[in-house]
Design a protein around this nucleic acid. Structure first.
Lengths: 413, 413
DNA sequence: GCTCTTTTTTTCGAGCCTCGAAAAAATACT
DNA sequence: AGTATTTTTTCGAGGCTCGAAAAAAAGAGC
């Protein structure tokens, strides 16, 4: 049961509101913050002067456009870049990248390297991450503030506590305790997040007008992933990162999926499935391990060009996605969609089939206009979402409690 | 964006905590409440004496078991039955019932009558509801407190604001504005809720240990309904009451559903679908309008007795439910399940097929033991959930704000 | 250049709220 | 009857937010 609300929580939450307002708006004045939060000017004044004294916010004197208005000019508040530093790590099939990022969201240093993830031991994967983070932080040296948080985004299923990678297509190993190992190594809180969830998080910041309280991000790549925001909250499973759209059942006992089961949406709409249908015409053939982007683009070109097995393969893919979305819409109604990843470049080929499938479902009723958006490159989105994840943690869990936290901790000690 | 938290909100929320603790625990002492809410004894003391003064709570002197302990005896706090009155209305196929209920949850008067809902005009349906509520409240007369809330539970889809019945199998008419019409008539806030959501609400109160933060209630009757609780919240659509499990797609372009579409889970697992498969062997036959409970029980008996079309029909039903659950579990992981309604009496026939279907899905992995529970009679659950809905509204929206509300309203006026 | 107006930000006292400690109340034990 | 024990209330202290007023920092007008 939820616990009663104490007096100190009040300040904590209002500090969080102010920080969040600044992160969202960029350089809002105190008056603006008062308006958006609904708190009084005096409260905003005290809170923001506290935050400035603590080095979390800073008055941004320099870059004002100095809009010529009559009275005392507004002074913008901005996040102090030096307040903290976070590290965002993105691990995907055969690739690892990481960046050290300041509190305002500017990348300080970054690195990317290729790995053969599918052939590595679990421990070697973890050590590659540790190594890269160590190199980067040392490269920054004293220049950067203290690292307060590390977030790792991985393709695959993580546990609901964001501590372990439960299963992933990038490695044959299960239950890899990334968070524990990295925390051990760096003494800083760490989370492992699902890549598609990070895409969803990034979309909220990229385009809050479209991606606000309810939307769906679908990653069309070798497999099919989904990031889902419902009622303003990132939707996760009760025990895992959840939202495994690719493994909803499209056709019971149908095509062979990479996961070993049959009839999953992915077994029709994943890159390997499209290739398999187009080239082999056998939906039970063993899925390929990997497939280059060019291969998919070539298939899409062929499908656009003429009727044939390629177009038929994309039809099956679109149908699987459409019926899957229809089933989801039966659960929580239609929402704006973003298709991300290589598959998005071929989405124009699939779209009519997706739409006609949705039209055959309960989702088709409400939705006069379900709108699709496509973004071929998922990498920057994952990176960005991962960064936001870490920064928001610092905002809410470290800076919002402020001295109250330190007081409480001292009390415990 | 969420708004800052003011000083008065604090008291409001802590009052809500206290009320909720009493509703949940029955007759907790102040000390107990302090423990469960985490608030200090002094705070609980002031808040509860306020609530007693306002006639919301009462000290329950009478029925103590007087457990012999050393110190000053605890004095239990209970909801004052006379604090308020609510009306719960349940409208289902060919049946309307309503009850006037006191603040402690005791039924004061109740009435049920049969209607031919499918042949009535929309307005006539609304008027039947109004008439029954009026008769009941008049029957109570001065005996009951003021009615503060009316909740209507209906089979079908309502809008997300719980104002209209968007679609229902009990009537051919759409968009029936129950809430507006009843509010007009009685001058009291009214909501229209989906019956399965009310079942879920009831289960939380019936057995909080099993039905707590995440669970699924599935109504197996003529159609298939679902009530879903995820992370402690009743799951609803963004625009409708949502969670239309019955209209997730089991087989694309498959059996004819009552909704006019094809391949819905309901088109395999609804009573009409089971009957159709067993008796006609034609999954495209026009669905029957209604079917008696006895018919389904007879089919289940036949299926238990010998292999044949009946057993095959239940196999198809179980498979549809199992694959559907598997897809849901892919989205948010397995959760405890309750099967409610006539179909639950036949669940033993379907269970093996349900389980084997789930085992073929992503949900099958995590779930070493997904547990099913069956409750044949849905009516008392719907009634109970509907009552709780209304009572919780009074708790949170009327009694928790308390005088603060009245003050604010006066300020506005 | 000086004063007036306008807008933003800070200051200050009032009013609530929760908390901890101590007191009061109510009962069982001896 | 007195003591121990547990629950509940009382009371002063400390925080927090708010509204009003003051202070600050500009442009506008003469």
């Amino acid at each position: 049961m939820s616990v009663g609300i104490r007096h100190d929580d009040l300040r904590k939450r209002n500090r969080a509101m102010v920080i969040s307002a600044v992160r969202r708006a960029g350089q809002p004045s105190r008056t603006e913050i008062a308006a958006t939060t609904g708190l009084s000017h005096s409260t905003i004044s005290t809170i923001s002067s506290d935050l400035i004294a603590e080095g979390i916010l800073a008055e941004s004197k320099g870059s004002e456009p100095a809009l010529l208005k009559r009275g005392r000019p507004q002074v913008g508040l901005a996040l102090d870049p030096g307040a903290a530093t976070i590290v965002a790590v993105v691990l995907s099939l055969n690739s690892l990248s990481a960046a050290v990022i300041d509190y305002a969201g500017n990348t300080i240093v970054a690195e990317t390297r290729r790995l053969v993830t599918q052939r590595m031991q679990a421990e070697a994967l973890v050590e590659e991450c540790i190594g890269m983070v160590r190199r980067l932080t040392e490269r920054c040296g004293e220049a950067a503030g203290t690292v307060l948080r590390i977030a790792v985004a991985v393709q695959g299923v993580t546990d609901s506590g964001s501590r372990k990678l439960l299963w992933s297509p990038i490695t044959p190993h299960d239950d890899i305790p990334f968070a524990d190992r990295l925390e051990q190594e760096f003494g800083v809180p760490v989370t492992v997040e699902n890549d598609c969830n990070m895409i969803a998080e990034a979309l909220r910041w990229r385009d809050p007008s479209r991606y606000r309280d309810d939307f769906i991000a679908i990653l069309l790549s070798h497999g099919i992933g989904m990031g889902l925001v419902v009622k303003g909250e990132l939707f996760t499973g009760t025990q895992s990162s959840g939202a495994e759209f690719g493994h909803m059942i499209h056709r019971p006992d149908g095509a062979l999926c990479r996961c070993g089961r049959r009839g999953c949406i992915e077994a029709y709409a994943g890159n390997y499935a499209i290739w398999r249908n187009a080239r082999l015409g056998d939906e039970n053939a063993e899925p390929l391990a990997d497939l280059s982007d060019e291969d998919i683009i070539a298939l899409a070109d062929a499908a656009r060009d003429h009727d044939g097995p390629e177009r038929e393969a994309f039809r099956k893919a679109g149908e699987a996605i459409g019926f899957g979305l229809g089933s989801m819409f039966a659960l929580f109604d239609p929402a704006p969609l973003a298709f991300v990843g290589v598959g998005a470049t071929a989405f124009d080929v699939m779209e009519p089939y997706v739409r006609s499938a949705i039209a055959k479902t309960a989702g088709g009723t409400h939705s006069r206009a379900i709108s699709f958006d496509t973004m071929p490159n998922e990498v920057p989105l994952i990176r960005e979402g991962c960064m936001m994840r870490a920064l928001l943690y610092v905002d809410d869990e470290i800076f919002a409690p402020g001295t109250a936290l330190r007081r409480a901790q001292a009390g415990v000690a």
